[in-house]
């Protein structure tokens, strides 16, 4: 519709006829999910080798800011995505869970690299065999370490999940996982998160 033929007064005076552009319709849920998927703010949760690749992904060559992802937040309170980049040790596990609990809903987790996803090659006393035992994971990125391209793919997969998924997912109860160490003499059950 050309400028000349448009009725004067915009939406209020002329109704829908008054609009020529900047016009979208959709369900509220779709719009919220669309907005969410384009402003995911990751927390800097670098642990090991993968953290270097995560930083490289934010660097000039791979340029993560193309996806609206470059603002890595130092405080978990300001972040809604935790990229667990590296192996999670038994000593780090409670810390990781505490940081996850501090993040605001809605929140997502990417498990970056095989160590975070399954313990990788370090199946021993020190490493938690998969971070999904501590926090719920949305996307697993394979590789040791995953190249920045793999991380980007994981992030885009997550964006897709956010757009396609439910709007409200975890109604305020965290993951509700209780972890207990078995077989270790004298150990007490460790309850992580909320019961």
């Amino acid at each position: 519709m050309s400028r000349e033929s448009r009725p004067e007064g915009g939406l209020l005076d002329a109704g829908l006829e008054g609009l020529s552009h900047n016009f979208l319709t959709g369900t509220l849920e779709e719009l919220v999910k669309w907005a969410r998927s384009h402003s995911v703010m990751p927390a800097t949760f670098g642990l090991a080798c993968c953290a270097i690749e995560m930083m490289a992904a934010g660097g000039p060559h791979y340029d993560l800011s193309r996806y609206g992802m470059e603002t890595f937040r130092a405080s978990p309170r300001q972040a809604d995505l935790m990229i667990v980049a590296g192996r999670v040790s038994q000593k780090m596990a409670p810390v990781l869970r505490q940081i996850y609990d501090q993040m605001m809903e809605p929140k997502w987790v990417i498990s970056m690299g095989v160590c975070a996803s399954s313990g990788g090659m370090f199946n021993n006393y020190a490493i938690v065999q998969g971070v999904d035992q501590i926090v719920p994971v949305d996307v697993y990125a394979p590789g040791c370490p995953p190249s920045p391209e793999t991380l980007m793919h994981a992030i885009l997969t997550l964006h897709q999940q956010i757009r396609d998924g439910e709007l409200t997912r975890r109604p305020g109860h965290g993951a509700g996982i209780v972890i207990e160490q078995v077989g270790a003499p004298g150990s007490t059950p460790v309850a992580l998160g909320r019961n």
Binding site: S89, M92, N123, N124
Partner: peptide, 11 residues
Amino acid sequence: IGYLHTGMERT
């Protein structure tokens, strides 16, 4: 320290 102890010497 020890938050990244991986047990590599044992592995």
